[in-house]
Amino acid sequence: MRTVYVNGEYLPETEAKVSIFDRGFLMADGVYEVTSVLDGKLIDFEGHALRLQRSLDELDMRNPISSEDLLEVHRELVRLNGIDEGMIYLQITRGAPGDRDFVFPDPETTDPTIVLFTQNKPGLADNPAAKQGIKVISIEDIRWGRRDIKTVQLLYPSMGKMMAKKAGADDAWMVEDGVVTEGTSNNAYIVKGNRIITRSLSQSILHGITRAAVLRFAREAQMEVEERDFTIAEAQEADEAFVTSASTFVMPVVEIDGVALGGGVPGRVAPRLREIYLDESRKAAI
C-alpha cells in the first residue's frame, strides 16, 4: 500500500481524504506537476517547483509549502514507497473555503489543499516505445486559452488520448488555426535535416520543463533549433518527429495521421536527444 501526502501528513492511501467541497473537485480550480524519478533521485525538481509557483501566481492562489519543504516531501515519498523509477504527482487546489460558489475568497484567508503521491514505473527509462516510436493523429484544439498554466483541467486531453486509441494510434497532436499547438500531454517537434522545429512559448502551450532541457542539450550538441509554428502537412513531410514530457522524456513519432515518417522507424535525432537527456538528467538528479 502506498504512502501519500495530504496537507502535511503522510498517510496510507486508503486513509487519505479531501473535502467534497474542495474547489479542485468542484471546479478544477487547481494546478499540478509531475516529477520523474530515476535511480531513486528526482529529475528537474527545481524547474518543476518554479513552474508550480508560476501557475499558482497566475491563478492568484497561495502556495502552502516552501520549495525546501516540498523537496523534502518528494524525497520522503520516494523513500517510503521504495521508488527507483517512477513519478511523483503533486496537486495544489484552492481548497474548500466554504460552500460551492463561483467567487473565491481572498487567497490569504484560504487554506489550499496539497496532495502528493508516487507511481512506481519500473523500466521508465527503457520504455520499448522509444525504440519503435509512436503514432499520432491530429485533433482540433478546443481547450481554454491559458495552456501555459498547468491546471488540472485535463478532460479534453484525456478525450484526445481516447480518440487516438480508438483510431489505433498512441497519442494526438492538437491543431489550432491550422498549426500544431502541442500533444495531449507533451510538447511536439519535427526535424528537417539537422534543424529541430517546435512552437515558440506563449499562452497557447505549456512551458515544458523537459522541453527547456532538451532544447538546451540540442544547442549544446550543435543542432539548430527553430521555434516557430508548423502544420500537420509540414510535419508529414519532415525527416522525423518527436515529443517531450516529464514521463516520456524524448519519444520518437513515426506516423502522423496515417503518414509514416522515415520509413516508419525512429530517425537519428530523437534517439540521440533521448540518450543525451537521460545521461545529463541522471547526472543532475537530486
Rank of each mutant, 00 (worst) to 15 (best):
R2A: 08
V4S: 05
G8N: 11
P12S: 13
T14K: 14
K17R: 15
I20A: 14
L26E: 02
T35Q: 13
S36M: 02
R51N: 06
R51S: 05
L56C: 08
E58S: 14
D60C: 09
R62P: 00
P64S: 03
P64D: 02
S66T: 15
R75H: 04
L77M: 09
L77N: 05
V78Q: 03
R79D: 12
G82A: 06
G82H: 11
I83C: 03
Y89Q: 03
D101F: 12
D101M: 13
F102H: 14
P105I: 10
P107I: 11
V115N: 00
L116V: 01
L116D: 00
F117K: 10
T118P: 06
Q119E: 12
A125M: 13
G133H: 11
E140Q: 14
D141Y: 13
G145C: 03
G145L: 13
G145H: 11
T151K: 05
V152F: 07
Q153F: 12
S158R: 10
M163N: 06
A164F: 11
A167W: 08
D177V: 00
V179I: 10
V179K: 15
V180N: 09
T181A: 09
T184W: 03
G193Q: 08
R195G: 00
I196W: 02
S200T: 06
L201M: 14
S202T: 14
I205C: 07
I205R: 08
G208H: 09
L215F: 07
F217R: 13
R219S: 10
A233S: 10
Q236K: 14
D239H: 00
A241Q: 08
T244Q: 01
S245L: 06
S245Q: 02
P252F: 07
P266D: 12
P266Y: 09
R268G: 07
R272V: 08
Y277R: 05
A285I: 06
I286P: 14
I286E: 15
